[in-house]
Design a protein around this nucleic acid. Structure first.
Lengths: 138, 138
DNA sequence: ATTATTTTGCAACATTGTTGCATTTGTGTA
DNA sequence: TACACAAATGCAACAATGTTGCAAAATAAT
C-alpha cells in the first residue's frame, strides 16, 4: 500500500476505511485521471456503486481530487497537485484528453496562460482542456 | 422566424423540419449555451425527448453547434461561430460558466492563448473554461 | 401527385446518479 | 481490550439521462 494513503486521509479528518484506501491508492498509482466506471471495474465489485459515488464526492469536497471538464459528458477525476493537505484552493489546471484511447492526463506542471475575459465577469477558476492524440496512440 | 434558419439547414443538407427549425431558432435567439433540459422545457413537450437528442447530435455532426466542456457533467451546446457553413473545423473556444445562475457564455471573440503542451501530445483542439460570477449575478 | 427517403414518436431498455434507512465498520474513551 | 458513539457501507428503490428498433408521419425528389 502506498505510504501516503493513511496520512492523506488523516490530514483530511476522514475515517480510514477499505474503500477510501483502495480508491485513493488507484489515484496514486495511476498517473491519468479516473472515471467512476474505471474505479468500479478495477475494484471488481468489491464496493457498492453508491459507495464509490460517495467516496469520490467526499474526496472532491476535501480537495483530494478534482473533477476534470470534458465535452463528452464523462466525469473524470484526478489527484490534486499538492495532496491538498493545505485545504482546497481552486487551482488552475491544464488537462489533455486523448481522442483515441480516452486517457485523460493532468498536466500539473503546465501553467495556465492569462486569458482576457471581458469586463463584468468575475473569474475564480480557469481550466484548459486540450485534446488530440497522446504519445501512446501516435 | 430567424431568417438564417432555413439557409443554415439547407447548407448542411438537412431536411427542413419543425424540430430543427425550432431548436435552431432557440440557439440563434439566445446568446448563451443550451442544455438538453433547457430545450425540452422551452419547447414545452412539443417534441419527443429522443427527437431533441437526435437533433442535437445531427447539429454537432454538421458543425452547426458544438458541445462545451464542463466539470459538473452537464452537456451544453452553443452555436458555432461562423454558422459553420464552411464545414466543421474544430475551433478553439473560450467559455464562461457562472457558478451562480449556471448560464454558460460562449466568448467567441476572446482568443485562446498558446499553451505549452509537453512533447508527445498532438493537440487538435484547446478549450478554455473559465468559471466564476457573471455580470448579472454580481 | 406520387413515390422514395428521411425524420419523428413511441416503447422499451441501458446507464448513470441520488436518497433513506438498517447494518456494519471505525473512532475515541474508559 | 471492551464499550459506546459516530460514521460509512450496502441495499433497495427511485430519478434522471441517454440509446435503440421500428412503425407512422413528414419531407424531398420525380
Amino acid at each position: 500500500m502506498h505510504p501516503r494513503i493513511v496520512d492523506t486521509l488523516k490530514k483530511n479528518q476522514l475515517s480510514i476505511t477499505e474503500s477510501r484506501k483502495k480508491i485513493l491508492e488507484m489515484f496514486l498509482q495511476r498517473k491519468g485521471a479516473l472515471a467512476h466506471a474505471d474505479i468500479e471495474q478495477q475494484s471488481g465489485e468489491e464496493f457498492d456503486r453508491v459507495t464509490i459515488y460517495r467516496t469520490l464526492q467526499t474526496f472532491v469536497e476535501k480537495g483530494i481530487i478534482h473533477s476534470i471538464p470534458s465535452a463528452d459528458n464523462s466525469v473524470r477525476y484526478a489527484l490534486c497537485k499538492d495532496d491538498c493537505s493545505e485545504g482546497h484552493h481552486h487551482d488552475n489546471h491544464v488537462h489533455f484528453m486523448c481522442d483515441h484511447c480516452g486517457t485523460t492526463y493532468c498536466l500539473d506542471h503546465v501553467s495556465v496562460p492569462p486569458v482576457a475575459i471581458p469586463p463584468g465577469f468575475k473569474v475564480t477558476q480557469v481550466d484548459v482542456v486540450a485534446s488530440g492524440t497522446c504519445m501512446k496512440c501516435q
